[in-house]
Design a protein around this nucleic acid. Structure first.
Length: 390
RNA sequence: GCUGGGAUGGCGGAGCGGUCAAUCGCAUCAGACUGUAAAUCUGACGCCUUUAUGGCUACGUAGGUUCGAAUCCUACUCCCAGCA
């Protein structure tokens, strides 16, 4: 079980300062939840992940079900022991893979359409959008049914069925502190009718998850509804009315950032104030301030970690690309304003050399720094909320 | 000195008569990445031109054969291997 204590609510925004108390420790919110899909923050040991000031991680039900299988994790004493992470953990339900291995894969889009993709595909709202996903349509490699989803394993092509009951059962075996309902994350290309039908399914699954859960883990219900205001509000009202321990806001966020913040506003008004709100899969640096101001308590995002592996360092000077040769002659620390161990001990020329030489340590150093940097930026925001300045 | 092999864009290396400004890899540059099929993907990469089914210069050097040569022939220069 968890307890959520709101320490302070901002008077100038919807932001709030809180404590999310779990049996594995307390999370100060607002807070980034780094992604540990396969029970690891890629490139880091759990000890290193802790040193980045990360307070809580999120692992993935679908991927851990495939490999190594929840039985292995359970017999190891649960996820915390398995990965030697003593702090709080979340598991995502596998609902995102309904999108990422489905329509996301088919059309090559993420959950926010880029301007280029918008031009190419339309948004699903326009009548003439040739590529919008309509009611009854199925992804190429998945079959989405009323009971759950038949996946094609990306590892070996095997058929895998995951529904609300299966997801909860797996998440109980994994043993995270906070688990999520099994949902369908919809595509930004889904039209109104598709989204509405999907929403009803997600709602039905949410009830099954709630009913099927036997453990004392905290269960968060997930709000869907895409970019459509009435559906978002309907979903928030419905999911918000159920006795969940907290709420996830998931799904697509249209084709621009303004809409994203607007959508969060629609949803949050309908959710019980006293419970924690988790925004699923959003967390670029430029988004973080906005979503916290909109009232988000926790959010997970692959940006600090994946971008690191692609050579990007987020610093007080902006985003630096360590795939570029120019840093070979740069003897400055990665970020002179950062106090992480990478910035204290290593210089840009060396990190650049390692990255360009294909050395895995470069990925570790950049991952470590990026997480530390993100966590630090968010700590500053918490400080501002405390002082009434955010 | 003789015999054999070779010289291709920043590098490595394909091509062996036309569809070749030249496969591919590396390097370089640019872009993408938001509940991780992601240490990944996309694009540019002789010069000029905003674009092209555009122009120019190119496959060691100099000639030649041919309607047409990176590709065939001759000479030269250099490199490599084996033998003296």
């Amino acid at each position: 079980m968890i307890e959520f204590e709101i320490l302070k609510e901002s008077k100038i925004s919807q932001a709030r300062l809180g404590l999310l108390k779990t049996s594995h420790g307390i999370v100060e919110t607002p807070c980034l939840v780094p992604v540990a899909t396969q029970a690891v923050v890629k490139t880091l040991t759990s000890e290193e992940a802790e040193q980045t000031k990360s307070q809580i991680l999120i692992a993935n039900t679908f991927h851990l079900h495939l490999k190594p299988g929840e039985a292995i994790v359970k017999s190891a004493g649960g996820l915390h022991k398995f990965m030697n992470w003593p702090k709080p953990l979340m598991t995502d339900s596998g609902g995102f893979q309904v999108f990422s291995l489905g329509f996301g894969r088919d059309f090559g889009t993420g959950k926010i359409l880029t301007p280029h993709q918008k031009l190419r595909f339309g948004t699903g709202q326009e009548e003439k959008s040739n590529y919008s996903i309509r009611k009854g349509q199925q992804p190429k490699l998945l079959k989405i049914t009323g009971d759950g989803v038949f996946f094609t394993s990306p590892l070996n092509g095997e058929k895998i069925f995951l529904g609300p009951k299966e997801s909860i059962k797996i998440q109980e075996s994994l043993g995270a502190d906070i688990i999520f309902t099994f949902d369908e994350c919809t595509s930004p290309m889904a039209d109104y009718d598709y989204t509405k039908k999907s929403l009803l399914k997600t709602h039905c699954w949410a009830k099954i998850c709630l009913k099927g859960k036997k453990s004392d883990q905290a269960l968060f219900g997930i709000v869907q509804g895409g970019k459509f205001k009435d559906l978002r509000k309907e979903s928030a009202r419905f999911i918000g009315s159920l006795p969940f321990d907290g709420f996830g806001i998931g799904g697509e966020f249209g084709d621009n950032k303004k809409i994203m913040v607007e959508m969060i506003n629609w949803v949050i008004k309908e959710l019980p104030e006293e419970k924690p709100r988790h925004l699923l899969g959003i967390g670029r640096l430029e988004d973080i301030a906005k979503i916290i101001k909109a009232g988000i308590d926790t959010f997970d995002c692959i940006v600090p970690t994946r971008y690191a592996r692609h050579g990007a360092a987020f610093t007080s000077e902006g985003k630096l690309d360590f795939a570029r040769m120019k840093f070979l002659k740069d003897k400055k620390p990665l970020d002179k304003k950062c106090s992480c161990f990478v910035c204290q001990n290593y210089r840009r020329n060396y990190i650049n050399h390692l990255f360009r030489a294909g050395e895995i340590t470069a990925l570790k150093l950049l991952t470590f720094h990026n997480l530390y940097f993100f966590n630090n930026e968010i700590a500053k925001i918490r400080e501002k909320i405390k002082k009434g300045k955010f």
